[in-house]
C-alpha cells in the first residue's frame, strides 16, 4: 500500500488559479463546486507587504481525520493509491468532515452531498500527472508517493541552502 499525495511549492505558486479551472474542466461531469481552491493573502502596509498564495485541495492524509469524523462512514481510503474519496450514496451532507479537516478541503456540493478532490482517480497513478499538476504553468503542484515527495522537499531545501547565504531553516526540516 503506497501512499500518494500532493506536494505544493509556495515559492512557485503565483495564484493564477489555472489548477482550479483545470480540475473543474476535467471533472466536469461529477463536479458542482470547486474542489481545488487557491488562497491569495497579502499582509503588511505599503511598501513592506508580504504576499503568499496556496493552492489547496485534499492532501489525502495517511490517517485522514475526515474519514474518522464521518457519521455515515462514507469516506474511504483507496488501498493502492491512498486516495481519500467520498461515497455519494452514503453521504448525507452533514459537513462534519469539513469541520475537522485541517486543510478545509471538503466542499458542499449542489446535490446536497460533500464533494472533494479524488486525486484524479481515472488517471493511472504514477503514470501521468494529475489534471491540476499537468496544467500548472509554474509546476508548483507535484504528486507522487510520500517518500518521493519528502525526498523532493529535502532536495529542494538542500539545493536552496547550497547557494542561499542566509541559512534560513526551511519548513519541516528542523531535525535534519
Amino acid at each position: 500500500m503506497s501512499q500518494y499525495g500532493f506536494y505544493f511549492d509556495k515559492e512557485k505558486c503565483v495564484g493564477c488559479r489555472a489548477c482550479e479551472v483545470a480540475c473543474q474542466v476535467w471533472n466536469e461531469a461529477v463536479q458542482t463546486v470547486k474542489w481545488r481552491n487557491v488562497t491569495c493573502l497579502t499582509r503588511g502596509t505599503y511598501p513592506e507587504v508580504a504576499g503568499v498564495n496556496a493552492s489547496l485541495a485534499c492532501m489525502h492524509c495517511a490517517e485522514s481525520p475526515c474519514k474518522k469524523a464521518c457519521p455515515r462512514t462514507a469516506i474511504s481510503k483507496n488501498e493502492e493509491t491512498g486516495a481519500v474519496t467520498v461515497d455519494r450514496t452514503r453521504c448525507v451532507g452533514c459537513m462534519l468532515c469539513l469541520w475537522t479537516c485541517p486543510f478545509g478541503a471538503p466542499q458542499m456540493g449542489e446535490m446536497g452531498r460533500m464533494e472533494k478532490c479524488t486525486f484524479c482517480e481515472e488517471r493511472p497513478v504514477g503514470v501521468i500527472k494529475r489534471a491540476c499538476e499537468e496544467i500548472c504553468p509554474q509546476q508548483a503542484i507535484v504528486s507522487g508517493t510520500i517518500e518521493e515527495l519528502i525526498l523532493r522537499s529535502k532536495q529542494v531545501a538542500a539545493e536552496r541552502l547550497s547557494w542561499d547565504a542566509r541559512t534560513e531553516v526551511v519548513l519541516g526540516h528542523e531535525e535534519e
Binding site: 499525495g5 506536494y7 505544493f8 492524509c61 495517511a62 486543510f103 519528502i150 522537499s153 519548513l171 519541516g172
Partner: peptide, 11 residues
C-alpha cells in the same frame, strides 16, 4: 508525526 508529515508537504 503523520500530521506534521502532511503539513510538511506544503513546502
Amino acid at each position: 508525526q503523520t500530521f506534521l508529515e502532511e503539513r510538511r508537504r506544503i513546502g
